[in-house]
Design a protein around this nucleic acid. Structure first.
Lengths: 339, 339
DNA sequence: TTGACTAATCGAAGCGCTTTGCGAAGAACG
DNA sequence: CGTTCTTCGCAAAGCGCTTCGATTAGTCAA
């Protein structure tokens, strides 16, 4: 491996001139000199060492990424993480930054913070950090540019990017209202999850805003699973006056509804309109193809990365939430209610 | 940010002693001295710089990963890459290595090789590199420890890890034979893909080895898609003497078969046994739940990483193929043939 | 008490770059 | 032809560590 010294010796120029060629500046270099030096580099098969550069410049041109709550054995296996990561990689590639995974799961500040103090990367993206841990406060105490994904920016002043469930829910409800539905039921995910609560609250608000009286029998608590979806759907569909549409808390729940409807001979979308949330890959393949809300996870990754790159470049970035808008994907499971 | 100099000055010991405390050697340090130095480090909030260490040691304690053929905009989105990556991260975490994504897609040696010559990582895993490119030869010419995934180790001497389609195919065929099937059809993926050819060849060989005469009408060319699966399945099932079992080249094809069977009133598994390949997430959710072959992608990632770590540690690693065994997942789509 | 070791520590020389104060050479100007 | 700018290029001082020969203190047998 040849070094910049070899290039200097071979070409007959000084170190600083070589460096100026390497970085196009800061001092100007005569064209002919530059050519001679470049030729020498090629001949010696020289390439600068990222370590030495990093040390001298105190910049590594590398981003760090840390996955929070997810199981270490499944960090990128769920669609959520994989999508966010994809967005991060895409946005990083656009500026030539590489991306380093911090693989060691966070224990606590005492044990884990050292990893992030080693100047290995110029900034850090933390995806879905746990709420009840010292992770974010600890990382924020470093002077390392930091951006969070899916984290309720609050006491700790860090910019954070997330999907806007409020907008997504409004899109769903409005779609059903526009089709003419009035008796719309909602099957919730588990009530200790923020998303489940948000989707329910915004569902209720939007219905109320449309002047529809609230019917507690049409809002059922549950889990984000096909089982509770199935169970709750049977309850709804065997009511004397069943709803004409169901807004399922997510696609898994919707799959449970689908099964219940099949069992009870309820046709979708003719007898019942059904909307899910998340747009799992399978949802486009169900019969009928499911109308649902596509989460903007890739865009979230991209956006977070761009914010981080701006901070690294020295721009001020407000430590606020950035809400990205999900998209309603209308397929075959929704239609106007029967007369 | 305090440096090792600050610790030296504050504690009154020399640089080299500090360094010996930091690394537990190579020279011994008296216990009391170590305690005093550690205390000073804590007081100064000192942490060593990965860059400076990397420069001095010429080791970064970081692995690189590069995804080959996949679209830059979908590097980790397909289940294959995500699973391999997961395996890599898991295995790397076990030894405290971080993992750096090289985000810039490979153009050619001239333009792209420089990225990998910068000593940024101690070794490189290349996932699914293109066959007809200078990528692998170029990378192999560097003196950077290298391991490939899904690459036919051959002219270039690099260890490579992949799933063994031969074993997987034999598992499928043997399962159907064990159930008592004799008329077994195979629906191929596209013939320019190695996997499609392997699966067909091993299918034919295993059948022949079981003493079953070859029936060309039962092996149909196609694509890895539900469409051709559907089409070909209709041909098979409307034959005068239809097969009692179908080995689909992959799960997508199997889904097409499922649809065709439904249309023609052929019950699965009563009238027809069906086996897929790949075990897509959806396959466990189909009706009937699909018997298929689960690819060992996570294990592939882990295995490749362990090989690379061994090479980095200085062990000799033979530049050969490592075949990992896939797993037959028996679900509800296979049963003995009707009498 | 001394010589021969061993254990503990120090000092200085790298690792491969970037950055800056400075000086030399040439161009522009009067 | 001397003076003042520009442009280029040089040398040296970092960046924050590791490494290794040299030095000192400590131990033990004779």
């Amino acid at each position: 491996m040849s070094t910049i010294y070899d290039v200097a010796k071979e070409s007959g120029f000084s170190l600083s001139t070589i460096s100026n060629v390497l970085n196009n500046g800061p001092r100007p270099v005569r064209a002919e000199t530059r050519q001679r030096i470049l030729a020498t580099m090629r001949r010696l098969n020289y390439h600068p060492s990222a370590m030495a550069r990093g040390l001298a410049r105190r910049k590594t041109h590398t981003l760090g990424i840390l996955f929070g709550v997810v199981e270490p054995s499944a960090v990128v296996l769920n669609a959520y993480s994989a999508d966010v990561l994809q967005g991060v990689l895409t946005a990083a590639a656009a500026t030539g930054f590489n991306v380093t995974h911090y693989t060691n799961p966070w224990i606590d500040a005492e044990q884990s913070l050292a990893n992030f103090r080693d100047q290995r990367s110029d900034g850090l993206i933390v995806v879905a950090p746990p709420i009840d841990s010292d992770l974010m406060p600890a990382l924020a105490s470093l002077d390392l540019p930091l951006v969070a994904v899916s984290w309720p920016s609050g006491e700790v002043a860090v910019p954070s990017v997330d999907a806007d469930d409020r907008v997504g829910t409004r899109l769903v409800v409005q779609h059903l209202l526009d089709l003419g539905h009035r008796r719309i039921a909602h099957l919730m995910g588990h009530g200790n999850l923020l998303s489940a609560l948000t989707r329910r609250d915004v569902f209720l608000d939007t219905m109320a805003a449309a002047g529809i009286a609230r019917d507690p029998a049409l809002v059922l608590p549950g889990q984000y699973s096909a089982e509770t979806g199935h169970e709750n759907a049977r309850k709804l569909l065997t009511m004397p006056d069943p709803p004409t549409a169901i807004f399922a808390g997510n696609d898994e729940i919707a799959m449970g509804v689908l099964e219940a409807a099949r069992e009870l001979g309820v046709r979708i979308p003719e007898d019942l309109s059904l909307v899910g949330y998340d747009d799992r890959p399978i949802s486009a393949l169900l019969t009928p193809r499911l109308t649902t809300v596509k989460q903007p996870f890739i865009r979230i990754g991209e956006h977070a990365t761009r914010l981080l790159l701006e901070r690294i470049a020295g721009k001020e970035v407000e430590p606020v939430m950035h809400w990205l808008t999900p998209e309603l994907v209308v397929r075959d499971s929704t239609a106007p209610p029967r007369r």
